[in-house]
């Protein structure tokens, strides 16, 4: 009897939650529960993070020297690329002025990652929410402005992010040839699926995919992923799983929420809110 009651209750809760879409009783319950668990999660992370970092450091000690050498080479290449990017930046700014476009300045909120959401759903909980201007649909990036996910639930002082690697995630992107496609998660941290309908162009390995700006709430130009192999059109279009995300959202401890296109419910003077300029769309790998 009790089993039946609990199963029916579960079913009703699910129905209310899905139908309610982040409002009503279930949203209130979620808010209350996260308010209670947030301090515990923060305390737990304060203990766990140094230990996990220490163990990670020990485990990777052997590869650190090689990593160091590789990073030096990359730094040299990055300096060269930066010099080229400067001239491209000037050109983009000129074009933006000519086209009377906003220069890509969006308020951004820095948030700490409280934790993941479990092994069977790819999400993160962060410590900034509605009161800091974070709303559902806001894109979330890492410190290199690489898109890692989108806010799917905003509570007063916390929010839940669905990572772009989640199978439910779909982000519209543009190739360097200007073709519109969709990048979907595959449930793994290292692969994404790119689908482009009706294109005559192949895409080369190494090409960086950026958000198209054609969907509400997500600005153009955010880096989403990079092709790891050539993707050839079959005459009708392209579908490839050889897209690598350029940031692993699960390993981040700090993320940035880009408040673009969503009106915050409450605004205030928050010292974590800054305004920064997104990088120019020069096609360079970050």
């Amino acid at each position: 009897m009790l089993l039946t009651i609990l199963l029916v209750a579960s079913f009703l809760l699910m129905t209310f939650d899905v139908r309610g879409q982040n409002s009503g009783l279930t949203a209130t319950l979620r808010t209350g529960a996260q308010s209670l668990t947030a301090p515990l999660q923060d305390a737990s992370r304060a203990v766990v993070d140094p230990i996990v970092d220490f163990v990670d450091g020990l485990a990777n000690l052997g590869s650190l020297r090689e990593e160091n050498r590789r990073l030096r080479e990359e730094l040299n290449q990055a300096r060269l690329a930066a010099a080229e990017a400067d001239s491209l930046t000037e050109r983009v700014e000129l074009l933006e002025r000519l086209m009377n476009l906003p220069a890509g300045d969006f308020p951004q909120t820095v948030a700490e990652v409280r934790g993941g959401t479990g092994p069977l759903d790819l999400g993160l909980t962060i410590n900034q929410g509605l009161e800091q201007g974070v709303v559902v649909g806001n894109p979330v990036v890492d410190e290199n402005q690489v898109l890692i996910g989108v806010v799917t639930e905003a509570l007063p002082n916390s929010a839940i992010i669905r990572l772009i690697t989640d199978p439910l995630s779909g982000i519209q992107v543009l190739t360097q040839a200007g073709e519109l496609g969709v990048v979907e998660g595959l449930g793994t941290a290292d692969k994404l699926r790119l689908t482009i309908f009706d294109t005559p162009f192949d895409i080369g390995s190494g090409e960086v995919l950026r958000t198209s700006g054609t969907e509400a709430g997500i600005p153009a130009g955010l880096v989403v992923g990079q092709l790891t192999n050539d993707a050839r059109t079959n005459g009708g279009g392209i579908e490839t799983d050889d897209v690598a995300p350029l940031a692993d959202g699960r390993t981040l401890t700090v993320v940035i929420v880009v408040q673009y296109g969503g009106a915050p419910i409450v605004t205030g003077t928050d010292n974590t809110t800054t305004t920064t300029t997104l990088p120019p769309d020069d096609g360079a790998t970050p």
Partner: peptide, 17 residues
């Protein structure tokens, strides 16, 4: 469920069973 992205009640149902 309250701390995740899944609908509230999904894990409740599974864990009850």
């Amino acid at each position: 469920d309250l701390n995740g992205t899944t609908p509230i009640g999904l894990r409740a149902m599974v864990f009850t069973i």
